[in-house]
């Protein structure tokens, strides 16, 4: 299992000394599939690697630098578009880590620009973004209505000329989720960066990353999310993390993430049976970069829907999607 090899290498970079060519091929394929190749490249900085690996890692570092540059430019453009509204624009995830120069951001793949704004400012934010050149991606009325009624974010938008996506969040979990984190408190506690942009407080960064990984979604990209959490935790006071997590109704999730992060990337931890299932899902990747453990992966896909919706609503949603021709991968 090459995901396990990837995790071991991130934990202990010097262990690559023992790898043969087939080990390296598996490590690189798994790191690319998990979008951790840039992170791996930074982790292996200064470690002796075979000559064929050096250019692969330096390409990955250069790609990561470009990603960060593009992401910060998108953040700058969003700040420019929203500046006149006078609301706090809080950067989330990869862009936030890059903007604040956090260890979690080093080499990190950054996809869309994610921002959090106050619920009551959503209409104005949407108008301002459209005026500045962003447009809707989804042309399906069901998807659009679904996002607006039930999700924690606007339907995704893309910039017409720069071709980059923005996700505008007003809270951190779908409105249908069991937990209801206090988004207003998160925005109030946010820390100022430059140019009118904000980042969540260190403890709320952990709570948000954990909510995203363990209380929502199907654990796709989970190894990277857990890597983020591992480094975000290092910047926090454990007591404040526990207080904030409890306030947002996510203490059990944060505790679980702490155990998993310590078990995979840190000194180790005692895992519950449920922790072990999640670990098995996180490590479902072989030396060709293929997903393995199909049944387990599918079970987590089902769970992600279960987390988001009550049963009747889920049934209606799946029926609508099925008729539209959507099939799980």
């Amino acid at each position: 299992m090459s995901a396990a090899l990837l995790v071991r290498t991130l934990r202990d970079p010097a262990s690559v000394a023992a790898l043969d060519a087939s080990g390296w091929n598996g490590l690189i394929a798994a790191a690319r599939a998990e979008r951790l190749i840039g992170t791996l490249a930074f982790r292996l900085d200064g470690v002796t690697v075979p000559p064929a690996v050096t250019p692969i890692l330096s390409d990955a570092q250069a790609d990561a630098a470009r990603e960060a540059r593009q992401a910060l430019w998108e953040a700058d453009r969003a700040a420019q578009a929203l500046g006149a509204l006078g609301v706090r624009v809080v950067l989330l995830k990869g862009t936030a880590y890059a903007a604040a120069g956090l260890k979690a951001g080093q080499g990190r793949f950054i996809g869309d620009l994610d921002i959090l704004v106050p619920m009551e400012a959503m209409a104005a934010v949407e108008q301002a973004l459209i005026a500045a050149g962003w447009e809707w991606v989804k042309d399906d009325p069901y998807d659009d209505a679904y996002y607006r009624q039930w999700m924690h974010e606007l339907p995704p938008m893309i910039h017409a000329t720069r071709d980059r996506m923005i996700d505008v969040h007003h809270t951190i979990l779908p409105l249908t989720a069991r937990q209801t984190p206090d988004a207003a408190a998160m925005i109030a506690d946010a820390v100022s960066l430059a140019d009118g942009l904000y980042i969540l407080s260190p403890e709320n960064r952990v709570v948000h990353a954990v909510a995203h990984m363990l209380a929502d979604g199907d654990l796709q990209g989970g190894l990277r999310n857990l890597w983020d959490i591992y480094h975000l935790l290092a910047d926090t006071d454990p007591n404040i993390v526990a207080t904030r997590a409890a306030h947002h109704g996510l203490l059990p999730h944060v505790r679980q993430a702490q155990r998993l992060a310590a078990a995979l990337y840190g000194p180790g931890a005692r895992l519950t049976l449920w922790d072990r299932l999640i670990r098995a899902r996180l490590l479902a990747r072989d030396g060709w970069g293929r997903e393995t453990r199909k049944a387990l992966v599918f079970a987590f896909f089902l769970r992600s829907h279960w987390l988001r919706m009550p049963p009747l609503m889920l049934a209606r949603h799946l029926w609508t999607k099925w008729r539209k021709g959507h099939r799980p991968q």
């Binding site: 043969d20 060519a21 087939s22 390296w24 091929n25 690189i28 394929a29 690319r32 075979p50 064929a52 690996v53 250019p55 692969i56 060709w288 970069g289 293929r290």
Partner: peptide, 12 residues
């Protein structure tokens, strides 16, 4: 046979 490849291709 024992080289470290730049790319993996899969026909699945």
């Amino acid at each position: 046979a024992d080289a470290i490849a730049d790319f993996t291709v899969r026909l699945q």
